[in-house]
Simulated assay, not measured.
Amino acid sequence: MAVTTPTPTRTSEEPAPPAAPRPARRRGAAVRRWRWPAVVPFFAFMAVCFGLPACTLAYNAFTVIDPDTGASHHSLENVRTSLSGAYATGLAGSVKLSLLSAVVATVLGTVIAQAVLASRRSALRKAVVSASGVFANFSGAPLAFAFIATLGTTGTVTRLLHLKATGFSLYTFAGLVLAYLYFMVPLMIVTILPALDGVRAQWREAAASCGATRAQFWRHVGLPVLMPSLLGGAVLMFGTAFASHATAAVMTGSSVPLITIQIANALSGNVLVGQENLALAMSLNMVVIALLVMAVQIPLQRRSNRWLG
């Protein structure tokens, strides 16, 4: 004889079973769909303010205009010219100036920032950070005039210390490096301070408990952890020096060949008339170098944030 068990019936007093949750995939898709309208103005701004000028620059850089007939055609002539002769010398000079300034600024800025942190004085740190923020933005023509009045041929410090007798001249490659360091070292201090703050005291204590000296700690622990931040800061310094124009234009003019000054001369017709597209080709070379700098800096910054965040 088969025995059947009655099926329990749910009374009105019992709570209803919970509803099945909606799939997470659908919720995520809905959230992404609602996020897109919020970023449309940003992409529109980027397209108008950056995309359109970049496309126009690239188009005109590959356009050659016949000075006799005014007819235009597409060619690589402007790009080849911008990478040869005096223009190649200017590009090499800008790269050399940027590399030297970036290396010196990275070393000096890191040493000064570490000395400020090691002092453990909050007042000193606030003063250095505030001064660095001001000096990092003091560049261009005002900085050039200040250096000319101080270290120029008839400058105050030049006359007091008799620098002319030593052969020192502000209007040379070395003078440009000195002027660039005035605003690049403070910028490096502001850039590297958060990374130095991320070096935890527990790491030093653990290294000391294992018998490591301070030099061994920095060589085996501190510098390897800080290396992405240091390289990222050096790349940032390179880009800053590479794009600077007003300081060099006021201090040295065309005596020191730099790509930025050559672009300005070509656009204004100081050397050759009708060479605007050649100037755009030189600008395109600078854009390519700037993109390479960004391609190096962004991964380094992400890796630094992963270690020190």
Rank of each mutant, 00 (worst) to 15 (best):
5 T>W: 10
9 T>K: 04
10 R>D: 13
10 R>N: 11
13 E>M: 12
18 P>F: 03
27 R>W: 13
27 R>V: 15
29 A>I: 14
29 A>S: 11
29 A>W: 08
34 W>D: 15
39 V>F: 08
42 F>S: 13
43 F>T: 10
43 F>Q: 06
43 F>V: 15
44 A>Q: 05
45 F>E: 08
46 M>F: 09
47 A>K: 02
51 G>A: 13
57 L>K: 00
59 Y>W: 14
60 N>H: 05
63 T>I: 12
66 D>G: 09
70 G>W: 02
71 A>S: 12
72 S>P: 12
72 S>W: 06
72 S>Q: 11
78 N>G: 13
82 S>L: 10
86 A>G: 10
87 Y>D: 10
90 G>E: 07
90 G>S: 12
94 S>L: 10
95 V>E: 07
95 V>T: 08
102 A>K: 00
103 V>D: 04
103 V>Y: 01
104 V>S: 06
105 A>P: 02
110 T>I: 07
111 V>A: 04
117 L>E: 14
117 L>K: 04
120 R>E: 11
123 A>Y: 06
142 P>D: 05
143 L>S: 04
145 F>P: 11
149 A>M: 14
151 L>Y: 01
154 T>K: 06
155 G>L: 07
157 V>A: 12
157 V>P: 06
160 L>H: 04
169 S>Y: 06
173 F>M: 11
173 F>D: 14
175 G>V: 12
177 V>I: 12
177 V>S: 02
179 A>Q: 01
180 Y>F: 09
180 Y>M: 09
187 L>P: 03
190 V>E: 05
191 T>I: 13
192 I>K: 00
193 L>K: 00
194 P>L: 08
197 D>S: 06
199 V>F: 01
203 W>S: 13
204 R>V: 15
205 E>G: 04
206 A>G: 11
208 A>M: 12
221 V>I: 12
223 L>S: 11
224 P>D: 03
226 L>T: 05
229 S>K: 00
230 L>N: 01
231 L>T: 08
231 L>K: 00
233 G>A: 08
234 A>C: 15
234 A>F: 07
236 L>A: 10
236 L>I: 14
238 F>H: 01
238 F>R: 05
238 F>P: 08
240 T>D: 05
248 A>W: 02
249 A>W: 03
250 V>A: 04
254 S>P: 09
256 V>L: 07
256 V>I: 10
256 V>Y: 01
257 P>H: 04
258 L>Q: 01
259 I>T: 06
263 I>E: 00
264 A>W: 09
266 A>L: 14
266 A>R: 01
270 N>R: 05
274 G>L: 09
274 G>K: 02
274 G>H: 02
275 Q>D: 14
276 E>Y: 01
276 E>S: 10
277 N>P: 09
280 L>A: 04
281 A>F: 03
285 N>H: 02
286 M>D: 03
288 V>I: 12
289 I>P: 02
289 I>A: 07
290 A>H: 06
293 V>P: 07
294 M>E: 15
296 V>Q: 02
296 V>K: 00
298 I>M: 10
298 I>H: 03
299 P>K: 01
300 L>E: 03
301 Q>G: 15
301 Q>N: 10
304 S>W: 00
304 S>F: 02
306 R>K: 14
306 R>G: 14
307 W>K: 10
308 L>D: 05
308 L>Y: 00
309 G>D: 07
